[in-house]
Design a protein around this nucleic acid. Structure first.
Lengths: 344, 344
DNA sequence: CGGGATAATTGAAACGGTTTGATTTTTATT
DNA sequence: AATAAAAATCAAACCGTTTCAATTATCCCG
């Protein structure tokens, strides 16, 4: 176990004091060129890497930075939120660093720990809320009064949150389909680690309760949200079902899933929207560019980012502990070409 | 200027010693419930937030993490690289944190500083190489033997780099167009802060030098790479030119730009590929989903991530300073539907 | 060549936690 | 109530840097 090299080792080797080495490190011009060269040389030889934390300990870390924990770095939903966060944070003099848990709960835990120990001043977290909800890591953050904002509801914890009104969103989408004459509608639900999944199912169900149409649980099918999963599962769904039992419309969990479903539909020769209407969710940037531009539920992604950054920074800068805030944001249905009316 | 609250303040207020407060903070079960409650209470009252760095100083930071500085969090090119980085890093027990400079050089500088002072063990950097190339911040990293890998060539510095063979890539694309009968070909070049821009222009030019066709500098037009810029500038390009002087094919700087260009073409009623062939660059995931699936140059994004993480971690873990490595990766032209032959 | 001015270097204190062995307090036992 | 054992707490040392007042080296000039 090679002991780590410190400024002291360098000093000794170069025959100077710690203070002088420190001066070189900080680009002070008080040190004689000859000495400077020698010290630089020794630093290279020993492969000396100064520990910035020791510096920060002394000076009180001069930087201001916040962290963001998202679930999927490749899903534009999250990067759009990140942009909102960044813009606001930047305007307040904060840097933002992004991490992606890739839907791994362990990862999320590690990141919260990382942030709090690296003097990242606060965090915005898209939490994984699986089953019995392991949330001790969030409690730990609360214990040390670490400021954070959640992007999904987590039961059992009082914390800042900026969330979307999923129930109302999906309810509105279903209503739109029903108004357009659809009677056989299915909801392709998402992954269980997301609170969005449950809320969107609720919304779907709720929409039926407002009509005379009956809801039954076969109308909700869990196919995941990752492209490959959704593709495979939806294809299976279509293949296992006689054609005359197909729904006429599908409400998808999100836009990525919707894309996979449309690809699967192509595979089984069902045309969108002529034979099947598809509604997505989120309105990621690329949804409008899909081969069939997607009708979807527009979420105010940028605003989610801005609002959560706002709350976070307010909390960071407050000398006293602030009570938790909760903000509920509304969505809009944006109609493109993947849905059509089947009224005669 | 409110003095920061320290563990000592808490200890004093609660009438215990620092050690006891520390024990509570670390969830040790050696502290009596009553005392624990009291301390917790005081921590809340004072809004005490422990500095993790002081902890790490004593224990030597237990975590292993690397940083990634990309230029645009919303461009899938970078998130695909990030995925490669993550996968490799994760397999080696490293966490990765991502930051985006959003093409702001100041930002990049700040992030390199942030990483090195927060004990992030090393960095992978997509550098902004504007004009006279401000690179003192990279030199500073070298001075402190901070391990890093560049994703673009930076002149004037010896450093690890994993780069794409842009010249060969574009040359191949142009050759493909010429073989398909195109004679009037234009290159829409990208932003000047990217070394890719220059290299791709070189490749474009080089392709002509291999034929009897003449190259002249009007064949390269700078329209930027951000969607809005590219859209506006390309539209202007088309509007200012009589129709019979249009090229028959355009080699775009990247896929995002290509999308903007295709949108502009729609605006002026030029059909792709019938009246205009378009070639992109990068092969981001969504390129295949564009309204007209894009012919583009496939870059091994995932591999870029993996290889650079590999080099970085090797450097981090080496006790001695390693000589810089440079890896040049090749691309492939993938032909979809945005190009066609105009041979009779 | 001496002496003051200036440049370069030193060394100890400080930063805010954790750790540890010693000490005090509490609990259990007789 | 006395004592042994166990539990809780304490005080000091420690981590690796920066800072700054004090010291030493160097320079300049008459």
């Amino acid at each position: 176990m090679a002991k780590r090299i410190t400024i002291e080792d360098v000093a000794k080797e170069a025959g100077v004091s710690k203070g002088t080495v420190s001066a070189v490190l900080n680009g002070k011009n008080t040190v004689k060129p000859r000495t400077r060269e020698r010290i630089l040389e020794v630093m290279k030889d020993l492969n000396f890497r100064p520990r910035g934390m020791a510096r920060n300990l002394k000076n009180g870390s001069e930087d201001r930075s916040i962290g963001l924990i998202i679930k999927d770095i490749n899903y534009p939903f999250y990067t759009a939120i990140a942009t909102g966060v960044r813009e606001y944070a930047y305007s307040k003099g904060y840097q933002v660093i992004i991490t992606s848990s890739e839907n791994d709960h362990e990862c999320e835990k590690k990141f919260t720990h990382l942030f709090s120990t690296k003097d990242i001043k606060g965090a915005i977290i898209a939490p994984i809320v699986e089953g019995a909800t392991e949330i001790e890591h969030l409690f730990k953050l609360k214990m040390i009064n670490y400021p954070f904002v959640l992007l999904e509801e987590v039961r059992g914890i009082q914390a800042n949150a900026v969330v979307i009104d999923n129930l109302r969103a999906v309810r509105q989408a279903v209503k739109y389909l029903i108004d357009a004459g659809h009677r056989k509608i299915v909801h392709f639900a998402g992954p269980l680690q997301s609170s969005h999944t449950q809320e969107r199912i609720e919304g779907f169900r709720y929409a039926f309760s407002e009509t005379t149409l009956a809801f039954n649980k076969d109308m909700v099918v869990f196919i995941g949200s990752r492209y490959e999963d959704s593709y495979r599962n939806s294809l299976e769904f279509f293949r296992n079902k006689p054609r005359d039992q197909y729904p006429t419309a599908i409400v998808c969990f999100n836009d990525q899933q919707a894309l996979a479903v449309m690809t699967a539909l192509k595979e089984v020769n069902i045309r969108v929207p002529d034979e099947m209407s598809i509604i997505g969710n989120d309105d990621i940037y690329y949804a409008q560019l899909y081969p069939v531009p997607l009708t979807t539920i527009h979420a105010p992604l940028h605003e989610i980012g801005v609002r959560s950054a706002e709350i976070l920074i307010r909390n960071i800068e407050s000398p006293v502990l602030l009570p938790p805030e909760r903000i509920l944001l509304q969505t809009d249905l944006v109609v493109r070409e993947s849905t059509r009316s089947i009224l005669v």
